[in-house]
Design a protein around this nucleic acid. Structure first.
Lengths: 213, 213
DNA sequence: TCTCAATTTAATCATTTGATTAAACAATTT
DNA sequence: AAATTGTTTAATCAAATGATTAAATTGAGA
């Protein structure tokens, strides 16, 4: 067994990184294994040597992507010591940070699920988180319910928060075109939403916004 | 030249319909021309006979899809006789109607643009609407600005409205899984948002909501 | 009926693409 | 140094896939 520890970055890792980038950009069907090999700077056969097949490699990328989308979020939602108001601030900021680093992440996940719904019930099936996830959402819902807001299902509010945060990343080219934004202005637009989205969400819940009124 | 008028539905049209369905479901790279032919119930060669190539056919589907996404919207936004409040009601309802009929539409458009950003600046380029579109958004912004709401760029509010409306369709499988919804409950969830989204948007703008308070 | 153009089909091509194989190479162990 | 094991490469395969071709079929009009 050769030593792997000293390697600056292992071949296996280079392939994974390249696959991550290309799959998220072009999707499963749109990505050639040869392109991944090129991007990783290795021979095509190596890809199959380390990761049995394109499908296997994709599975790894997808699982990791789903984790990125949910894990940090769940830790926050699941924490019973933070208030609902704090949770809103944290979740919005966590997502904006995450999506700035991985702008293609949400569209990748969503459209792969759309293209192949059956595949996901089994092959990925929202990896090993399902139970905690449901639990987290339930907990958040209970907290929201306690915060007032009569007869509206608090799940609506969670969806609103996620929608308003994620959608501007998914629709980046549209938004830039429609509003004639350059990259700098778009960036600024996103930053403004860090404070605005929590503000709007809290208003929906009838929660007092600090420094207002 | 053979008569085409009496045909119940022309072969050309059958191919177009099939292409529409499959491209929106699986994307460009994920759709085989053979699948389109099968779906249309015709021979593969016919596809190339009527539409020179896969790319040409895709271009037609994409152009039509973009139109679906924007044309109805622009007509509403551009009408100077309807108030901002009415516009909000109409836009949200138009989108929910549209997306109920074409649930895959938004994810299709957004992810194809993501997968191939260059392609869209030229090949489709948001067909022939660009100028009016910018104009419409500008007009809506002006109306929103007049409605008050100090220093927030009204474009944020437009994005919020679109986000909250479109995202639940793009994330349908996620939402159903996360909230343990069956189809009926999901349907009901969407219907609730017909009234809720305009309510929230108007609240953001400080516009009086009918029947409240 | 015969002709002609439009339509449709079956067969085939050429390329792309995921995957494999056999051999070369490298580093560690003995 | 020889052997062993893990890594990498070049060449190749087989299937899938977009596209074409040549022939058959259809229906309208002369």
């Amino acid at each position: 067994m050769r030593e792997d520890i000293n390697n600056d970055i292992s071949t296996e890792e280079k392939i994974r990184k390249a696959a991550f980038k290309l799959f998220q950009q072009k999707g499963f069907a749109g990505t050639r294994t040869r392109d991944i090999a090129d991007e990783a700077g290795i021979n095509l056969a190596l890809l199959n040597y380390y990761y049995r097949s394109k499908e296997k490699l994709f599975g790894i990328v997808m699982e990791e992507s789903l984790k990125q989308m949910f894990v940090r979020l769940l830790i926050v939602l699941n924490n019973p010591t933070t208030s609902i108001s704090e949770k809103i601030d944290i979740v919005v900021n966590i997502y904006i940070d995450l999506l700035k680093e991985n702008p293609n992440l949400p569209l990748f996940v969503l459209s792969e699920v759309q293209a192949n719904p059956e595949k996901f019930k089994k092959q990925v099936g929202i990896p090993d988180l399902t139970i905690e996830k449901i639990f987290a959402i339930k907990q958040a819902k209970e907290q929201i319910e306690k915060a007032g807001m009569g007869n509206i299902d608090p799940f609506h509010i969670i969806i609103n928060m996620v929608s308003m945060t994620i959608f501007p990343f998914a629709a980046k080219p549209m938004i830039k075109t429609l509003n004639k934004m350059d990259d700098e202005r778009y960036e600024q637009f996103l930053e403004e939403r860090r404070k605005l989205i929590p503000f709007w969400i809290k208003s929906m819940l009838g929660i007092e916004n600090k420094g207002t009124k």
